[in-house]
């Protein structure tokens, strides 16, 4: 039985209304092909993401890792890092050269800045997501474990979701001509790994959590620390939280 038919039969076995349980070859990179197989049940997970701004050093390793992990085309970004330089209450300079794929340079004059910090950005995987709402063909969807993804085989490439996302997280892939976005590295997290950006972050500024895991440290931080979400006034209920974000961050 090929892997493909295996997956399909696993799907059919689940049946309508029941839990979606999909067999995932775990650690396939290091194991012999298909040797270790673990069953993944999306009802057992509820993911969330936490960005700790005070820890980010602006190295851009996350952006580089994301690009390589997901083959993100040039000039498009599933994640990026912004640098905010606040000079006074009225003047804030923001930049993200190439999404910080190669980190940041010292381009800004250090003089006169009252504060400066880096802000990693990625898809917020909103609970009430405007992008999925507007997809005319149901190619954008939210999984039970809370990840917003695109069905590349159904997407017609109209670009409506790109317009609807208030965070600029989506783009039309110039090669596949379909919408694309951050998936929280769904192929990794379902194998029990961290998203590539989280793994690449040397300072723990990016944290990936699961509400349904016992004593999850990330969920605990979100529950007990003063976190905020981006553009809360739009009521999209982002599942990506920010710790220590300045008012300028949008």
């Amino acid at each position: 039985m090929s892997r493909r038919t295996f997956l399909v039969s696993a799907l059919q076995g689940a049946g309508a209304g029941a839990a979606l349980v999909i067999a995932v070859p775990v650690d396939s990179l290091l194991a012999d092909k298909g040797r270790v197989v673990e069953r993944y049940d999306w009802n057992d997970h509820s993911y969330l993401f936490l960005v700790d701004i005070s820890r980010c050093i602006g190295c851009g390793m996350c952006v580089k890792a994301c690009k390589k992990e997901n083959g993100v085309p040039a000039a498009f970004y599933r994640t990026w890092v912004e640098r905010y330089t606040v000079y006074d209450e009225e003047t804030t300079h923001i930049e993200s050269p190439e999404g910080a794929m190669n980190g940041f340079g010292p381009s800004n004059p250090a003089t006169g800045a009252s504060k400066s910090f880096f802000v990693p950005k990625l898809c917020n995987h909103c609970k009430y997501t405007p992008c999925t709402q507007v997809c005319p063909v149901g190619a954008s969807y939210t999984t039970r474990d809370g990840v917003v993804m695109v069905d590349r085989k159904r997407c017609i490439g109209c670009g409506y979701c790109v317009q609807a996302c208030p965070y600029g997280s989506r783009y039309i892939d110039p090669e596949s001509h379909t919408a694309d976005k951050c998936t929280w590295c769904y192929h990794r997290i379902t194998r029990g790994m961290n998203p590539a950006c989280v793994q690449a972050c040397p300072k723990g500024a990016r944290l990936f959590g699961d509400r349904m895991r016992e004593n999850d440290p990330v969920f605990e931080m979100v529950e007990t620390r003063p976190v905020r979400i981006l553009q809360p006034e739009l009521l999209t209920k982002p599942q990506c939280y920010y710790l220590g974000a300045d008012k300028e961050v949008r």
Partner: peptide, 20 residues
């Protein structure tokens, strides 16, 4: 409102970076 196979498609993608 989506195709279940789309999730399977995503799961089939092989990780590029290894485990930690």
């Amino acid at each position: 409102n989506f195709r279940t196979g789309a999730v399977a498609d995503m799961l089939e993608i092989e990780p590029v970076h290894g485990r930690w």
